[in-house]
Simulated assay, not measured.
Amino acid sequence: MARNLNPKCRQCRREKEKLFLKGDKCFTEKCAIERRNYPPGQHGQKKTRMSDYAVQLREKQKIRRIYGLLEHQFRNVYKQADRQKGVTGENLLQLLEGRLDNVAYHMGFGASRSESRQIVRHNCILVNDKRVNIPSFQVSPGDKIEVAEHAKKYIRIKSSAEIAKKRNIPSWVEVDSDNLTGVYKSKPERGDLSSTINESLVIELYSK
């Protein structure tokens, strides 16, 4: 399976904002954005004027990196969102947020999306009491998500759940951190999602 092996902190610096790819480190002073808030490379601190296409491309790359998708995976999600009724941009974000690895991350079963993806891959997550090891699996409203019994003893999962108690849990999920279970209550509304994401730029890019 293809993976993005680029350094995570370097990806955040490229987009000049925190993408929360490193879990706990992103909330400390060791975060690369806190220390060097400019793109990597010898020309990183040079101010350049970006074209409309460059702005659209950077936004697409940022969203891809946040959710940990490769180009062909992201394009397939966009095509699916475009086929659905409603606003394509909102559909796109709802499909990304509804991925099993992302839901597990929001519930605190992993410190980051990449760690949650690994947990899903290693058969540690149950959906409605059935084992699912596909990170892109689309969770439906009302689905019960829980950590498998054999994985509840893993220190990393338990520590992630403890840390998740201190951060804001999204309103569209309900979590019992002590028992490592949760419910995906509903699809998130656009107002509940990050205001730093401008999905309309992605729609403009792919509509050309």
Rank of each mutant, 00 (worst) to 15 (best):
Q138F: 04
S159W: 07
N91D: 11
K25Y: 04
S51I: 06
Y154G: 09
N37I: 13
N91L: 06
Y184K: 00
Y78W: 14
R156K: 10
R75V: 08
Q11I: 15
S112V: 03
E146C: 09
D52A: 13
T88Q: 04
L21H: 07
K208F: 11
L57H: 07
S177W: 06
L57G: 05
K22Y: 00
F109Q: 02
S51E: 09
D176W: 15
F109E: 05
Y184I: 12
E29P: 13
V120I: 11
P188V: 01
A104F: 03
Q45S: 07
V173P: 00
R49G: 03
R167G: 03
S136W: 04
L193A: 03
C9F: 01
Y105V: 02
R35H: 08
L5V: 06
R113Q: 11
E162T: 10
Q118E: 14
S136C: 02
S207T: 15
E115S: 08
V127D: 05
F20R: 07
L19G: 05
V55Q: 10
K60P: 07
E97A: 05
F137M: 00
C124R: 09
V127P: 03
V87W: 02
L205H: 01
L5A: 12
R75I: 08
Q45F: 11
N37F: 07
S171R: 09
C12K: 08
V175R: 04
S177V: 13
R58V: 05
G191N: 10
V87Q: 09
S194C: 02
D178G: 09
Q94M: 15
V55D: 02
R83L: 15
P188L: 09
L95Q: 12
A148V: 05
Q11N: 07
E174H: 05
R121L: 14
K47S: 12
N6V: 14
L100S: 01
S207I: 11
P40A: 02
L5Q: 14
S136M: 06
K208D: 11
R156F: 12
A104Q: 01
N168Y: 00
L92F: 09
I163Q: 15
N128H: 08
Y105W: 05
G98K: 00
H122K: 13
